[in-house]
Protein backbone atom coordinates (compact mmCIF):
# COMPACT_ATOMS: atom_id res chain seq x y z
CA UNK A 1 0.00 0.00 0.00
CA UNK A 2 1.27 3.45 -0.87
CA UNK A 3 1.31 6.08 1.81
CA UNK A 4 2.38 9.63 1.03
CA UNK A 5 3.87 11.63 3.86
CA UNK A 6 5.35 15.11 4.01
CA UNK A 7 8.57 15.29 5.99
CA UNK A 8 10.45 18.54 6.43
CA UNK A 9 8.55 19.97 3.49
CA UNK A 10 9.21 17.15 1.03
CA UNK A 11 6.64 14.59 -0.09
CA UNK A 12 7.49 10.90 -0.06
CA UNK A 13 5.33 8.16 -1.53
CA UNK A 14 6.15 4.91 0.18
CA UNK A 15 5.05 1.36 -0.30
CA UNK A 16 4.61 0.41 3.32
CA UNK A 17 2.17 -1.20 5.74
CA UNK A 18 0.22 1.82 7.06
CA UNK A 19 0.42 0.38 10.57
CA UNK A 20 4.21 0.77 10.57
CA UNK A 21 5.20 3.28 13.21
CA UNK A 22 6.43 6.50 11.67
CA UNK A 23 9.74 6.05 13.50
CA UNK A 24 10.79 3.07 11.38
CA UNK A 25 9.69 4.76 8.18
CA UNK A 26 11.76 7.83 9.01
CA UNK A 27 14.79 5.79 9.94
CA UNK A 28 14.73 2.89 7.50
CA UNK A 29 12.93 4.27 4.44
CA UNK A 30 13.82 7.95 4.50
CA UNK A 31 17.20 7.31 6.16
CA UNK A 32 16.71 10.11 8.65
CA UNK A 33 18.71 9.51 11.83
CA UNK A 34 17.20 12.13 14.11
CA UNK A 35 14.28 10.26 15.64
CA UNK A 36 15.60 7.42 17.79
CA UNK A 37 14.15 4.19 19.08
CA UNK A 38 14.24 4.48 22.85
CA UNK A 39 11.31 2.58 24.27
CA UNK A 40 8.59 2.17 21.65
CA UNK A 41 6.15 2.92 24.47
CA UNK A 42 5.85 6.70 24.45
CA UNK A 43 7.73 6.98 27.73
CA UNK A 44 11.15 8.45 26.90
CA UNK A 45 10.72 10.97 24.08
CA UNK A 46 13.80 9.92 22.06
CA UNK A 47 11.58 9.50 18.99
CA UNK A 48 9.87 12.90 19.25
CA UNK A 49 8.93 14.62 15.99
CA UNK A 50 6.38 17.31 15.19
CA UNK A 51 3.09 16.43 13.55
CA UNK A 52 1.29 19.55 12.35
CA UNK A 53 3.47 21.55 14.71
CA UNK A 54 2.83 19.49 17.82
CA UNK A 55 5.32 17.15 19.48
CA UNK A 56 4.43 13.50 19.12
CA UNK A 57 6.01 10.11 19.74
CA UNK A 58 6.86 8.75 16.29
CA UNK A 59 7.27 5.26 17.79
CA UNK A 60 3.52 5.14 18.47
CA UNK A 61 2.30 6.92 15.36
CA UNK A 62 1.14 4.62 12.56
CA UNK A 63 2.46 6.09 9.32
CA UNK A 64 -0.97 5.72 7.77
CA UNK A 65 -2.30 8.13 10.38
CA UNK A 66 -0.07 10.97 9.25
CA UNK A 67 -0.56 10.77 5.51
CA UNK A 68 -0.85 14.30 4.23
CA UNK A 69 0.08 15.89 7.54
CA UNK A 70 3.16 18.01 8.17
CA UNK A 71 5.96 16.05 9.82
CA UNK A 72 9.08 17.76 11.06
CA UNK A 73 12.18 16.04 12.36
CA UNK A 74 15.37 17.42 13.85
CA UNK A 75 16.82 17.42 10.33
CA UNK A 76 14.19 20.05 9.57
CA UNK A 77 15.54 22.41 12.24
CA UNK A 78 18.86 22.87 10.51
CA UNK A 79 22.03 21.15 9.45
CA UNK A 80 25.62 21.03 10.63
CA UNK A 81 26.41 23.77 8.13
CA UNK A 82 23.32 25.84 8.85
CA UNK A 83 22.09 24.92 12.31
CA UNK A 84 18.81 26.29 13.57
CA UNK A 85 18.74 28.67 16.50
CA UNK A 86 17.95 26.00 19.06
CA UNK A 87 20.63 23.73 17.63
CA UNK A 88 23.11 26.60 17.88
CA UNK A 89 22.16 27.07 21.50
CA UNK A 90 22.72 23.38 22.22
CA UNK A 91 26.09 23.55 20.47
CA UNK A 92 27.13 26.63 22.42
CA UNK A 93 26.15 25.02 25.71
CA UNK A 94 27.67 21.68 24.64
CA UNK A 95 24.38 20.21 25.74
CA UNK A 96 24.99 16.55 25.03
CA UNK A 97 26.85 13.65 26.49
CA UNK A 98 26.00 10.47 24.65
CA UNK A 99 23.44 12.55 22.79
CA UNK A 100 21.03 9.73 22.07
CA UNK A 101 18.13 11.65 23.63
CA UNK A 102 19.10 15.00 22.18
CA UNK A 103 17.22 15.02 18.89
CA UNK A 104 14.07 14.25 20.86
CA UNK A 105 14.94 16.97 23.37
CA UNK A 106 15.41 19.47 20.56
CA UNK A 107 12.07 18.64 18.99
CA UNK A 108 10.31 18.74 22.31
CA UNK A 109 11.86 22.10 23.20
CA UNK A 110 11.25 23.54 19.74
CA UNK A 111 7.55 22.78 20.09
CA UNK A 112 7.48 24.87 23.26
CA UNK A 113 9.36 27.76 21.70
CA UNK A 114 7.08 27.71 18.65
CA UNK A 115 4.11 28.13 20.96
CA UNK A 116 5.69 30.36 23.58
CA UNK A 117 8.89 32.15 22.62
CA UNK A 118 9.48 33.37 26.17
CA UNK A 119 8.79 30.52 28.58
CA UNK A 120 9.88 30.80 32.20
CA UNK A 121 12.01 28.18 33.93
CA UNK A 122 9.03 26.35 35.43
CA UNK A 123 7.32 26.18 32.07
CA UNK A 124 10.46 24.83 30.43
CA UNK A 125 10.92 22.14 33.06
CA UNK A 126 7.26 21.13 32.99
CA UNK A 127 7.27 20.94 29.22
CA UNK A 128 10.46 18.85 29.09
CA UNK A 129 9.13 16.41 31.66
CA UNK A 130 8.15 13.86 29.01
CA UNK A 131 11.72 13.36 27.79
CA UNK A 132 14.32 11.23 29.53
CA UNK A 133 18.07 11.72 29.63
CA UNK A 134 20.27 9.12 31.30
CA UNK A 135 23.63 10.88 31.18
CA UNK A 136 22.40 13.68 33.43
CA UNK A 137 22.68 16.39 30.79
CA UNK A 138 19.51 18.04 32.06
CA UNK A 139 21.21 21.17 33.39
CA UNK A 140 22.83 21.87 30.04
CA UNK A 141 19.67 21.14 28.13
CA UNK A 142 17.84 23.66 30.30
CA UNK A 143 20.64 26.19 29.80
CA UNK A 144 20.51 25.65 26.06
CA UNK A 145 16.78 26.24 25.93
CA UNK A 146 17.17 29.40 27.99
CA UNK A 147 19.95 30.49 25.67
CA UNK A 148 17.73 29.93 22.65
CA UNK A 149 15.06 32.08 24.27
CA UNK A 150 17.60 34.83 24.84
CA UNK A 151 18.96 34.53 21.31
CA UNK A 152 15.46 34.79 19.94
CA UNK A 153 14.83 37.91 21.99
CA UNK A 154 18.11 39.38 20.80
CA UNK A 155 17.17 38.80 17.19
CA UNK A 156 13.79 40.36 17.77
CA UNK A 157 15.30 43.36 19.47
CA UNK A 158 17.74 43.77 16.60
CA UNK A 159 14.91 43.62 14.12
CA UNK A 160 12.97 46.21 16.05
CA UNK A 161 15.77 48.78 16.03
CA UNK A 162 16.36 48.30 12.33
CA UNK A 163 14.92 51.21 10.36
Amino acid sequence: MTVTITVNGADHALDVDPATPLLYVLRDDLELNGAKYGCGLGQCGACTVHIDGKPAFSCLTPVGAVAGRRIRTVEGLGSTQAPGLLQQAFETEQAAQCGYCIAGMLMRAQALLDRNPDPDEAQIRAHMQTNLCRCGTHMRILRAIRRAVAMHKGIQAAQEVRP
Partner: peptide, 10 residues
Amino acid sequence: IPAKLTGGAA
Protein backbone atom coordinates in the same frame (compact mmCIF):
# COMPACT_ATOMS: atom_id res chain seq x y z
CA ILE B 1 28.19 16.99 19.07
CA PRO B 2 27.25 18.71 15.78
CA ALA B 3 26.13 15.46 14.16
CA LYS B 4 24.17 14.56 17.26
CA LEU B 5 22.25 17.82 17.09
CA THR B 6 21.35 17.62 13.44
CA GLY B 7 20.50 14.00 12.75
CA GLY B 8 23.91 13.14 11.34
CA ALA B 9 25.05 9.53 11.34
CA ALA B 10 26.36 9.57 14.88
